[in-house]
Computed example of a mutant assay.
Amino acid sequence: MNRKVILTCALTGSGDTTGKSEHVPVTPEQIAADAIAAARAGASVVHIHVRNILTGQPSRDDALYAEVVRLIAASDVDPVINLTAGMGGDLVLDPSEPTRTLPGTDLISGLDRLSHVEKLLPEICTIDCGTLNFGEGSNVYVSTPDMLREGAARIKELGVKPEMEIFDTGNLWFANVMVEEGLIAPPPLYQLCMGIPYGAPVDAGLLQAMVNMLPDGAAWTSFAIGRNQMAWVAQSVLLGGHVRVGLEDNLYLSKGVKATNAQLTERAVDIIHNLGSSVATPDEARDILNLQRKG
């Protein structure tokens, strides 16, 4: 069981959720405000995507990331900043002519996915550790071993902590290979992502099996999407891990009741405390993960 728990709030994500809840933040001001509110509610880390201001669709605009980070830095809170570096991996294929791509394709190199990380030097950035059939249809998320090794090496050069996003056991196998090859600075940080079609299903036995595959000294977090989000807070703590909540993964506080990021954070804090553990402050999280503060 983990007695000192790092709590991440994933604020907005890249899913098609802006039309499903009025609480999903879109503009840099909204995303930063949610980050600040989540930090005040107890979040140790805020995980940040950005969106096109006009359409609400996911964006890779460096200027949007910079504005979110600036606004958080100007506030009275100091959460650990975790920027996604997973954007730019979407390949949508025509099933009748798979050599042709369809609208929605946004595929760039692994290094190009790090443009905003290079400029802003967050304490943490994500790296998605494998290629995945992402949901129904013909959308494939592309992250090859060559891309991953190149990206991990650059992230290490920058002094940023990579949070290795693990969507299935094969992803975990390869993440462990990168650790063995010295591409990941200690302690390695794993995010075990459950319930995203078609990756690892939400299954406590599978989570335990994945935890058993982690190398000695690893730090890890796990989350489950949708209605399993809060149950997975308890599941992760009991197995010795850290936790993640937020509107990227779940829109509801309870059945029919739409949540805010601050409310989801508060609920997670209560669960952690009721289990007899405590939530890490941002500085405690920095110590646990051996982060290099930037700026």
Rank of each mutant, 00 (worst) to 15 (best):
G241V: 05
E157K: 12
G199I: 01
G89P: 07
N139I: 13
H273K: 13
G205V: 08
S75L: 11
Q191Y: 14
E284N: 07
L158F: 14
I48F: 02
W173I: 14
I6C: 06
Q235Y: 14
R100K: 15
T260R: 03
G89T: 08
A185L: 15
E163W: 06
Q235T: 15
M178A: 06
R293A: 11
G246C: 07
N290M: 14
Y252G: 00
L214G: 01
G130V: 03
N171L: 08
P122A: 06
P197D: 09
G226Y: 13
V237I: 09
D16M: 13
A35G: 11
T99P: 01
G135K: 07
C125N: 06
I155H: 01
I155Y: 03
V117S: 03
P122F: 05
S278R: 13
N228A: 15
V92P: 07
Y65M: 02
S278T: 13
G205M: 07
L239S: 12
T18W: 07
N52S: 08
E136F: 15
L172G: 02
T131G: 12
M210C: 09
A152C: 12
I155V: 11
V269D: 00
G195V: 03
D90T: 13
Q229N: 13
V92L: 12
L102W: 12
L120E: 10
G42A: 09
A262S: 11
D249C: 04
G19P: 05
V202H: 06
A234P: 05
G56E: 01
A280C: 15
L291V: 11
L83F: 13
V179P: 03
Y252Q: 07
E67V: 00
E165A: 07
H49R: 03
K4D: 13
Q30N: 10
K156E: 07
R70V: 10
N228E: 15
V269H: 00
N274A: 05
V245H: 00
A38Q: 03
D112R: 13
L107H: 11
P28W: 02
R293E: 11
L102I: 09
V269F: 02
S44V: 06
P162E: 01
H242F: 08
V233C: 04
N171W: 15
H49V: 01
Q191W: 08
L238C: 12
K4A: 10
T18D: 07
N176R: 13
S277F: 12
I81Q: 00
P282C: 06
A10Q: 03
S75C: 12
T144H: 12
Y65E: 02
E157V: 05
N171A: 14
N212R: 10
E150W: 12
Y65T: 02
S21D: 10
R227F: 10
T105E: 07
G137L: 14
I36D: 00
V24L: 08
T84W: 00
R293F: 08
